[in-house]
Amino acid sequence: MHTRPQRELATAHAARNGAGARVDLLVVAQMVKPGAKVLDVGCGDGELLKILTETKNVDGRGIEISREGVNLCVAKGLAVIQGDADTDLADYPDNAFDYVILSQTLQATWRPRVVLEHMLRIGERAIVSFPNFGHWKIRLKLLFQGRMPRTPHLPDTWYDTQNIHFCTIRDFRDLCNEIGVKMEAAVALNAWGGKLRINVPWWFWNLFGEQAVFLLTRKK
């Protein structure tokens, strides 16, 4: 059974492209400007930080709750410390980074709203990716099987999952509106990692997007 110190090391089952990199991480990397100062929260094994360092020449830092993840990152030469997104972001000063990133980890935090608010306090922009619990396959499994669904992005059984707060794309959009966050960009990915069209209505993304990536800023 997973323990709480393992919950932010949740990258092994995410969708990958032919080159081996998680598809959502490649989308995140495209949103980051070269040379930016970046904090990757819940950075796991450091895959995203390595991509950003090698392709965008960023000044990258990370925090990871799992000691195993920290060790993997340090072995790759990455500047990562052990820390908890739910408690340690409060210690960072305002506007310390250009981007604060939370990839496939928001649903594994105890206080998602507080975490998101801290991200936008300490960073000029926040990038968040998460699995969409409103996807049609999940709805059908709940409807016809009457069980908590298991998918490639949500692979664990209900009693053994690292996730605490499941949400849909619509839920996250509502949260952004509630706390006054501007959505600069948003991408929904289908089961094969392809991007859904940007000119379709939100309900379409909520129904057919398996995961989503949002680039956020504070409203001025």
Rank of each mutant, 00 (worst) to 15 (best):
T3L: 08
T3M: 06
R4A: 10
Q6T: 09
E8I: 03
E8G: 01
L9Y: 13
L9H: 12
L9M: 14
A10S: 13
H13R: 14
A14T: 11
A14F: 10
A15T: 06
R16K: 15
N17H: 15
N17Q: 15
G18W: 07
A19F: 13
G20N: 11
G20S: 12
V28P: 07
G35Y: 06
V38A: 10
L39T: 08
G42P: 02
G42Y: 05
E47F: 05
L49V: 00
L52F: 00
L52S: 00
T53G: 10
N57Q: 10
V58C: 14
R61Q: 14
I63F: 03
E64D: 05
V70T: 02
V74Q: 14
V74N: 14
A79P: 10
V80W: 04
V80L: 07
Q82V: 09
Q82T: 12
G83K: 04
D84T: 02
D84F: 00
D94E: 09
D94M: 04
F97P: 00
I101S: 05
L102K: 01
S103C: 11
Q104V: 07
W110D: 13
W110S: 08
P112N: 01
L116H: 08
E117W: 00
H118E: 12
R121T: 07
E124I: 05
R125S: 12
R125C: 09
I127N: 03
P131F: 07
H135T: 10
K141S: 10
K141R: 15
T151Q: 03
T151Y: 02
T151N: 01
P152Y: 02
L154W: 04
D156H: 15
T157M: 09
Q162L: 10
C167V: 11
I169E: 01
D171C: 10
D174R: 15
E178H: 08
I179T: 07
G180E: 07
K182C: 13
A185I: 00
A186H: 11
A186C: 10
N190D: 15
A191S: 07
G194R: 08
N199S: 04
N199D: 13
P201G: 02
P201I: 04
W202V: 13
N206C: 04
N206K: 02
N206L: 01
G209Q: 13
V213W: 09
L215C: 13
